[in-house]
Amino acid sequence: MKALIVFGALLLSTPLYAAQLVLELGASSRTWQTEELLKHPDVQTVQITDDVSYKKPMSYRAVPLTTLLTGVQADDHLQAVALDGFAAEMPAAPLLNKSGARAWLAIEDPAKPWPPLGEGKHSAGPFYLVWTDPQAGHISPEQWPYAVATIKRLSAVADRFPALLPAPNLAKDDPINKGFELFQKNCLACHRLNGAGDAQFGPDLNIPFNPTEYFSGDFLKRYIRDPQGLRHWPQGKMPGFSAAVLPDSELDLLVGYLKHMAGRKQPLAP
Rank of each mutant, 00 (worst) to 15 (best):
V43D: 07
P126D: 10
P115K: 11
G8Y: 06
Y257G: 06
P239M: 08
K98S: 14
F209K: 13
S249V: 15
A27W: 04
Y257H: 01
L117W: 00
S28G: 08
C187N: 08
S28C: 09
E24V: 10
E119W: 04
E119M: 12
L220T: 08
A199D: 03
R61D: 14
K221I: 06
D174P: 00
P57T: 11
L25Q: 05
L268W: 12
R160Q: 15
L230V: 10
G100K: 04
Q266H: 14
P162C: 11
T70H: 08
T212P: 06
L164M: 13
D248Y: 03
G125S: 14
F127M: 09
W144P: 02
K152M: 04
R225A: 13
V22A: 11
G8D: 13
W233A: 15
G263C: 07
L23E: 02
M58R: 03
G85R: 05
F180T: 00
G8C: 13
G118L: 09
E89K: 03
A171G: 12
E24L: 12
V43A: 13
P166L: 09
M261P: 00
L4F: 14
E36S: 14
L230F: 05
V81F: 00
I48S: 01
P126M: 07
L164I: 07
W32A: 07
A243K: 12
L65K: 01
W104M: 01
E119A: 15
S13Q: 09
H191K: 03
H122N: 11
K172N: 11
A74E: 15
S249N: 14
D76E: 08
I176P: 03
K221T: 09
K265M: 07
